[in-house]
């Protein structure tokens, strides 16, 4: 079989030496350039398939960097103001539900929520689960499969909560820039503060698996 592909970090392809790779200038999460831009995605695909015409390799060519998404903003770059405003995650979930459902309805039911398998209408229970875990309680959820331990399940819960918030916000502000959504989540929502607190708590647990999970929850 003949292979061709897209690489985000050109320096890694120089070391691995795959047969044909197109180095693109986009940040992680945007391999084909831009969401909801089929024309540009086809441009990236065409450039990737064009590498199949080369007669020797390794081939490592660059896509012209005429479109570069913003750098991902991490939670630690912001100061969360939700507690001063008296916000709490459970009420936020209720307030955002209509927007989240609006997102799903306008996207043919497509949602990134689902890794934990907990229905979004049970997310207030997920908040209590996370709050209990942070405060050191023996806490669990009946939806957790036996073969997924608590740290891994917490990560899946956080992924779902973030996706719920982000999709609700995108329905609320359809023209909002990605960076504005990150800023809103981490600096203005009680959920952002809760997720950051969970990440901090798990990174301090003397268990490598919890620490590995924490690195993927918030930093």
């Amino acid at each position: 079989m003949t292979t061709t592909g897209i690489v985000l970090i050109e320096e890694h392809a120089q070391r691995v030496k795959p047969p044909r790779m197109l180095a693109v200038p986009f940040f992680f999460g945007n391999a084909l350039g831009e969401a909801d831009n089929p024309e540009y995605q086809h441009k990236v695909l065409q450039a990737t398939f064009d590498l199949l015409d080369r007669d020797q390799g390794p081939v490592l060519e660059q896509l012209p960097d005429d479109m570069v998404p913003d750098i991902l903003m991490q939670g630690s770059e912001t100061t969360n103001e939700s507690s001063e405003k008296g916000l709490n995650s459970a009420d936020e979930l209720t307030e955002l539900r209509a927007y989240y459902e609006q997102w799903m309805n306008s996207h043919d039911g497509r949602t990134a929520v689902g890794g934990s398998s907990i229905p979004q209408r049970r997310f207030r229970g997920v908040v209590r689960f996370i709050e209990g875990f942070i405060s050191g309680e023996e806490t669990d959820m009946k939806e957790r499969p036996e073969d997924i331990n608590v740290p891994q399940f917490l990560r899946l819960c956080v992924n779902d909560l973030k996706a719920f918030y982000y999709e609700a916000r995108m329905a609320q502000r359809p023209d909002g820039a990605d960076r504005d959504i990150h800023d809103w989540f981490w600096s203005q929502t009680a959920m952002g503060a809760l997720v950051m607190a969970l990440g901090t708590h798990m990174s301090g647990i003397d268990d490598k698996e919890s620490q590995a999970v924490a690195f993927g929850i918030a930093r």
Binding site: E34, A35, L72, G109, G115, K162, D178
Partner: peptide, 25 residues
């Protein structure tokens, strides 16, 4: 696309584009 989800374990990338349009990856 409604039946595909992502449980990538890294926080080091922006999921927003994939939330919007899975074709971006």
């Amino acid at each position: 696309s409604a039946d595909i989800i992502q449980t990538h374990t890294s926080l080091g990338f922006d999921h927003t584009g994939i939330y919007r349009d899975i074709n971006v990856t």
